[in-house]
Design a protein around this nucleic acid. Structure first.
Length: 111
DNA sequence: AACCTGACGAAGA
DNA sequence: TTCTTCGCCAGGT
């Protein structure tokens, strides 16, 4: 399991934990909110390796195209199910309308 | 210290 | 519009 050693990682964890039900954020936006716009891959790495440990709502994180990007079919279907349960509409090809469902947060000051 | 990993993303072809 | 390439980062070995 991972050990937090950077402000970046701590912020990412905090941000993800605060995504409200029924909303989503993209890897890139999370990285940007955590003051490192180019660290989207690290966000992905974090989710992949420490979702359980930090009890994160991992399903509310999608890619910049507004799509679910899990690798296996089963995983995609599971994430789709979790999101739909919260009212998020999933279109063909696991596409989500960011205009409607992207969490509108501009800074993490108040978190 | 060097190298590997990831559910990324922007830019080209 | 779809696919490939390449740069990114930080934690884990």
């Amino acid at each position: 399991m991972i050990c937090i050693t950077s402000d970046f990682t701590r912020d990412v964890i905090k941000i993800i934990k605060n995504i409200p039900s029924g909303k989503v954020l993209t890897y890139g936006r999370i990285a940007k909110l955590a003051s490192n716009p180019q660290a989207a891959r690290q966000v992905s790495w974090l989710l992949h390796s420490s979702t359980k440990k930090y009890n994160l709502p991992w399903h509310r994180v999608i890619n910049s195209l507004g799509k679910i990007s899990m690798k296996s079919f089963d995983a995609r279907e599971y994430q789709k199910h979790l999101l739909e349960k919260e009212g998020v509409v999933i279109r063909d090809n696991y596409k989500i309308d960011l205009k409607e469902f992207l969490w509108d947060i501009e800074s993490i000051e108040h978190l």
